[in-house]
């Protein structure tokens, strides 16, 4: 039985997991979906209610019924043949995505994570509501394009308000790449909310923090790393100044661990990277879960065996 790894060609985290599996004698097929259709083919027939057949590359192949688990690790979009017209590319991409993606998504195997569940979990308003329902403390949050609502929310905040992106914090414009981090709103910001009304914005109460924590969930195993800020910027958002943070192993409180377990079940995820603020009073406040979050750099800093644990999860597999 084979572990199918869907990852791009240059992905060092995937390299480590593939090596771990290979050394352990576990058959692996690693493919990037950009190989489709020119270097990856699918031959699938529906027989007795399940898809059977093969995925083939010029170098390797696997029977669909021989797959024990699938790691969906950010594969790239299809690379279609040069020369197709734009309508033809749109058509080919759509058919490929529903066809290849649909066959894979239907396989009754362990997914880390199933792409549909990951896609659902990307919605942060959903995450927050589910997390609260699972007993985790969450920040007071506003999603709105109303300036009146923004003023109301900020006025009612005892600790000040922050603004943070709901989706990816990156845009490309004006020949450059721009990134965003959590920003503490000032009076000057709130005096001029031009552009607030053109789309949704997420505002939250600033959560007083002694430090932050990243919890990496791999199956039933939780790895928790405390993140200590060493600069003003990293205190607001540690992603903004990695050079100023340091890490330590932590154990979350039991009620947080239990809440995380419920959250993973509710979201249908077996892998996730969760961010928490740890308050001066020791309380843990859930910020978000990233179903495709990174773990490698935390393993590097703490020595926690995340790669081996993920490889073990994939090797064990499961039918669903």
């Amino acid at each position: 039985m084979t572990v199918l790894v869907l990852a791009q060609d240059f992905d060092r985290t995937a390299d480590h997991v593939v090596r771990e599996l290979t050394v352990g004698g576990v058959p692996v097929l690693r493919v990037d979906l950009s190989w489709f259709p020119q270097r990856l083919s699918i031959d699938a027939e529906l027989r007795e209610g399940r898809w059977t057949g093969r995925l083939c590359t010029p170098h390797r192949q696997v029977a669909l019924e021989d797959i024990r688990s699938i790691w969906h690790r950010s594969p790239a979009a299809f690379d279609l043949p040069v020369g197709m017209s734009t309508p033809e590319r749109v058509h080919a991409h759509r058919e490929g995505k529903i066809g290849l993606g649909g066959v894979l998504a239907s396989l009754p195997v362990l997914w880390a994570n199933h792409p549909g569940r990951s896609a659902d979990a990307v919605y942060k308003p959903l995450q927050l509501a589910v997390a609260a329902g699972c007993g985790l403390r969450v920040p007071r949050t506003l999603i709105s394009n109303s300036t009146a609502a923004a003023h109301r929310f900020a006025d009612q905040s005892a600790t000040g308000a922050v603004i943070k992106m709901l989706g990816a914090g990156t845009i490309h414009e004006d020949h450059s790449r721009k990134v965003s981090f959590t920003h503490r709103l000032t009076g000057g910001d709130l005096d001029d909310l031009a552009g607030f009304d053109v789309t949704c914005h997420q505002m939250q109460d600033w959560v007083p923090k002694s430090r932050e924590a990243r919890v990496v969930v791999i199956g039933e195993t939780l790895f928790t790393v405390g993140i200590h800020a060493g600069s003003a910027a990293s205190h607001v958002d540690w992603r903004s100044d990695h050079s100023a943070v340091h890490y330590e192993r932590l154990e979350p409180p039991g009620e947080v661990t239990a809440g995380i377990g419920r959250l993973m079940v509710r979201l249908g995820l077996v892998y996730g990277a969760l961010d928490f603020v740890i308050g001066p009073d020791g309380s843990w406040t859930f910020l978000e879960i990233n179903p495709g979050g990174q773990f490698g750099w935390l393993q590097l800093h703490t020595g926690l065996p995340m790669t081996a644990t993920l490889a073990g999860l994939l090797a064990a597999g499961a039918t669903t």
Partner: peptide
């Protein structure tokens, strides 16, 4: 991930067109 040294989130890029 939208954390770690990069802030890109792979799941955010889901093109309907190549």
């Amino acid at each position: 991930g939208d954390e770690g040294p990069s802030e890109d989130f792979g799941n955010d890029y889901c093109p309907d067109q190549t």
